[in-house]
Design a protein around this nucleic acid. Sequence first.
DNA 1: AGTAAATTACGCACCTTTTCGTAACCAGGA
DNA 2: TCCTGGTTACGAAAAGGTGCGTAATTTACT
Lengths: 120, 120
Amino acid sequence: MKELVSRCPIEEVMQVLSGRWPTLLLYYLKDGTKRFSDLRRDNPTVSHKMLTQELRKLEKAGIVQRTTFEGYPLRVEYDLTPAGLGLVPLIDALGDWWEETEDARLGTGRLIERAVQAST
Amino acid sequence: MKELVSRCPIEEVMQVLSGRWPTLLLYYLKDGTKRFSDLRRDNPTVSHKMLTQELRKLEKAGIVQRTTFEGYPLRVEYDLTPAGLGLVPLIDALGDWWEETEDARLGTGRLIERAVQAST
DNA sequence: AGTAAATTACGCACCTTTTCGTAACCAGGA
DNA sequence: TCCTGGTTACGAAAAGGTGCGTAATTTACT
């Protein structure tokens, strides 16, 4: 999803939040400052390439704050920005919706044969 | 994003909503019933294949209702399920958040050099 | 004292996997 | 034969994983 096909804000947010990692990172970061290596430990299946790439995407979007410290070994800290913090409850709401509607979504509806009508 | 790495509902929703089309389709469908060809017209950049694929994904997730009518020419209608309708305001909220926080996200924060401290 | 190794957060190149568009084909009744 | 909605095969392009290189300092060993 490189380019946008509409100029609506929703497509823009989704461009940033799409994929496996953005929301997961949001969740690890909402508990406070994390270093790069912390995030890798938290989720052992991210490759370092993906992790840097996604963190930079979130940073560019203003959701994540990246702070580097001089000295060695290198140290870089990641936090949510205030805006990023405000995003958390919205993502939570999506998760809640998913759980709450599980029965409705996967319930009887799937099994019922849809009305088959003659087109007039 | 074929497989899930966590069992959290958020990753599950994002698996369904990720990408360019799911939220766009949600938006075209929230105005009421649409046929396959309507949706293609609404968004001329979706390929035939992508459209069916995404619609089926949404159908499987219980967000979209697919109804076929017998008679010719063939007719298939797509609607949001009640659950799908409930999703719309949540996506709206994301879009609003994106717009509202634009200044905060892209504002001065980006330009400020971060604190650079000597590691003790 | 002097050398070697480890440390952290990456960037880069290479290669595999996944995704997506194109295009052709299908069904089945008017 | 045309229409709509859909499937399939193929190939190109994009996404993503692996491993190597690197910085400058500390620690570890001899």
